[in-house]
Amino acid sequence: MTAPALLSLKNITKLFGGIRALADVSFDVAPGQIVGVIGPNGAGKTSMFNVITGAYKADSGHVMLAGEDVTNQPPHRIARAGISRTFQNIRLFGGMTVWEHLLVSQPHSESLMRRVLPTRWADPTALQRAEEVLAFFGLEEMKDRNARSLPYGLQRRVEMARAVTARPKLLLLDEPVAGMNHDEAEDIRKLILRLRDDGLSVLLIEHDMAFVMNLCDYLHVVDFGAMIAHGRPEEVRADPVVLEAYLGRAA
């Protein structure tokens, strides 16, 4: 990798009681890359996301975002520094419409005045941003629907839209196509590629191998909290260590 890393994990260790959920994990995400993290269930992938976003405190190691140390900062600071995420089990806000989800997650540089006055007439930039994202994700018709009442696939889309609204530098997607059929997954794949074209970097966890192999520029394989392999998709696919981790367990 030639470009300086956008996200850089350095020797991250996370313990739960005596159990090491993450053991000395290091890797980089270069700007404009789509990077996948794969590994068996319980390997520590979601723990890794939680450490990156500040939901968990790392026991040791550092998380750097564009050269800035954001290790163990409160989640909202890390979010404002430029990392947005989605959740494996979708976490939309109850009682809010799709539109409201896109208003509440706006970039956070704005003045208090704009935030406390009615959005409709005090904050044209927020409205414009929300419209933009709404169109990008093809959610215009769902605008005023209660987000939680939408079908599952659309809820995932709303969650992604919410994460993107804040104009992050890096987007973390936790199983973005879980439970989706092939066509829906393909739509999501195209969306992610378009996001990358707009300059966003993406780090994602996914179990759907075909999806990951078709989308990611680079892969990291985790097992028992440790990085066991990495490389371009075709390299990882052929790696005997990876086959062992997956097939050896599945058998």
Binding site: P74, H76, A79, M96, Q106, H108, R115, V116, A126, A163
Partner: peptide
């Protein structure tokens, strides 16, 4: 008026899911 503002949505978000609210950048 406040009920039509972003701050109010932020309050609702915190009410509903504090963790998720933090992770979308709400303090």
């Amino acid at each position: 008026l406040l009920e039509r503002s972003r701050v109010w949505l932020e309050m609702q978000a915190v009410n509903d899911d504090e963790t998720a609210a933090g992770l979308v950048g709400l303090n």
